[in-house]
Write a protein that binds this DNA or RNA. Structure first.
Length: 107
DNA sequence: AGCGTGACGCAGG
DNA sequence: ACCTGCGCCACGC
């Protein structure tokens, strides 16, 4: 178990406890996982997830509330669909409403 | 070992 | 609210 694996494990642990229908930003996950301001590492950790992982990776978006561009085209669409199935609403410009950006139930 | 790249974020303008 | 530059740092070549 090297440093990177341990860090990734902490990221997954945080993402695992994001409630259904709610969303966190990469930065919020980084802070909650004890990574300080290393939001970028959260992206790497999620990128490293295998297919069919139980980790709800789709509940993580960027600081502007939008789904980040992927190297694999189409992956963004899957994330959008998963979120909408959980009741998360997007505005006309593809950004999730602020009230979903938190672990809290209400705003 | 060096260098470009990227599921990011923030401060400035 | 948008655009740009810069800091961050693991990975792959």
């Amino acid at each position: 178990m090297n440093e990177t694996e341990g860090r990734n494990a902490r990221v997954y642990a945080v993402v695992q406890r994001i409630p259904r229908g709610r969303v966190l930003t990469y930065g919020q996950v980084a802070a909650a996982a004890g990574l300080g301001a290393m939001a970028r590492q959260v992206g790497y950790a999620l990128h490293a997830l295998p297919d069919h992982s139980p980790v709800p990776w789709h509940r993580v978006v960027n600081a502007r509330g939008e789904i980040s561009r992927r190297s694999v085209p189409g992956a963004e669409l899957e994330q959008r669909i998963r979120l909408e199935l959980e009741g998360v609403k997007f505005d006309a410009r593809g950004r999730v409403r602020r009230e979903w950006l938190s672990m809290e139930k209400a705003r």
